[in-house]
């Protein structure tokens, strides 16, 4: 089967399946037998293998060392949700509601306690519920018999009961969408820190500067034109 136009060779359809190890043994043997005879298919297989290896190698060098979250696709669910759907699903989850309620409750209680403390000036309340920085309290209101040497920079904040609650609630909120959103893969400095022929010279200069000082925070978000995995997925969600 030696065709000038490779797409006419009936074996070309089996090539990718063979390459990914997804042909049956008999189909595989048939293709192998054909490859021995068909120079065109051999060249075509080489071309396809080469393209595949470049993607494979790129993935392993750039993404595998970064411990990306796995992309969980439920095969029971035939529909691939878009990223916005996933986000919405996250916020619709039942545990999210109590989490937010709890956060709101915590903030309100901080305010109420702070208010009570301001009004009463009761030292016992101060001792038991030292105000957190979320409450604006004038420094002069701090316990009168406090030694002079103590800092007068506002209320004591080291043993607040409220603050950890607020912080936890805030943290919960912040971490909600994370496992479900395509991870923002930061560029590995080693892979971007070199100028590239044919690229915009301005961009190349920027990359070289990064090389000179390869610290993570040296990356300017606006200068970083690299593709992130998230961008690869960006428009894939909707069908």
């Amino acid at each position: 089967m030696k065709n000038a136009n490779i797409s006419e060779c009936k074996f070309s359809a089996d090539m990718v399946s063979y390459m990914y190890g997804e042909l049956s043994e008999s189909e595989g043997s048939a293709l192998e037998l054909h490859l021995v005879d068909c120079a065109e298919c051999v060249d075509e297989f080489a071309a396809v293998s080469s393209a595949r290896y470049e993607v494979y190698d790129w993935k392993h060098i750039e993404f595998d060392p970064l411990e990306t979250p796995r992309f969980e696709v439920s095969y029971d669910d035939a529909v691939v949700p878009s990223w916005s759907d996933k986000l919405r699903a996250v916020f619709a989850q039942s545990w999210a509601v109590p989490a937010f309620s709890f956060a709101a409750l915590a903030i309100v209680s901080v305010l109420v306690i702070g208010l009570a403390w301001m009004r009463s000036g009761d030292e016992e309340i101060i001792a038991e519920n030292p105000p957190s920085q979320t409450v604006a309290v004038p420094a002069k209101d701090v316990v009168k018999d406090e030694p002079e040497s103590l800092p007068t920079v506002g209320p004591r904040i080291e043993v607040t009961d409220q603050k950890p609650i607020v912080a936890t609630a805030a943290k919960t909120k912040a971490s909600l969408p994370k496992p479900h959103v395509a991870p923002k893969i930061r560029e590995v400095p080693a892979t971007t820190a070199v100028s590239v022929k044919g690229l915009d010279p301005k961009q190349a200069t920027a990359k070289n500067e990064v090389k000179a000082a390869p610290t993570l925070n040296a990356f300017d978000d606006e200068e970083d034109t690299s593709l992130r995995l998230a961008e690869l997925f960006e428009d894939l969600g909707t069908r």
Partner: peptide, 12 residues
């Protein structure tokens, strides 16, 4: 490094 950049651009 050049190759990675080019592959990345090609895929995207």
């Amino acid at each position: 490094t050049e190759r990675l950049i080019i592959v990345r651009q090609a895929v995207s």
